[in-house]
């Protein structure tokens, strides 16, 4: 087997792993997004901020709306376990899940690269995960 064939085989394996994980997380994500939104707008659960209040202030800058309505942002939406039973929080969480989907794919890709002994791409993939986790942690805002 030539080097090129070996390389192609290795790429395919990582790509297949990434594709499999991506397919799974994106399908779950879309379902979560739809269900979360229905729970929110149909008010099947109580809301932390009423929809009318959001609609009455969505012309404001994000920071101004936050100041006025005390809308949750970042991980503060789950300040307590009880918050998980708020309709808007469920919808927020579905969006957070979508934003985290790439991280999950990259973690699996990192492990596969490592098993393939491709340390250069293991490093790149791990660095990418770190960048996304730092963004998701909220420390740079």
């Amino acid at each position: 087997m030539s080097d090129k064939e070996k390389k192609s085989e290795s790429i395919d394996k990582v790509q297949l792993v990434y594709a499999r994980v991506l397919e799974m997380v994106s399908h779950v994500g879309m379902a979560f997004l739809a269900i979360g939104y229905l729970v929110y707008v149909l008010q099947l659960l109580p809301l932390s901020v009423p929809i009318d209040a959001i609609a009455g202030n969505w012309h404001l800058k994000a920071s101004e709306m936050q100041q006025k309505l005390h809308t949750p942002a970042g991980w503060s939406i789950i300040s307590s376990p009880a918050a998980l039973f708020k309709g808007d929080v469920v919808s927020y969480l579905s969006i957070y899940y979508l934003a985290m989907a790439t991280v999950v794919c990259l973690v699996f890709a990192s492990v596969t690269f490592y098993r393939e002994k491709n340390y250069l791409y293991t490093t790149i993939a791990v660095l990418q995960v770190v960048v996304l986790l730092v963004a998701a942690s909220g420390v740079i805002h």
Binding site: I54, A73, D88, A99, H141
Partner: peptide, 10 residues
């Protein structure tokens, strides 16, 4: 955008 409150699910 999420941490700045600029993502509104609605």
């Amino acid at each position: 955008y999420i941490f700045k409150g600029a993502v509104v699910p609605l």
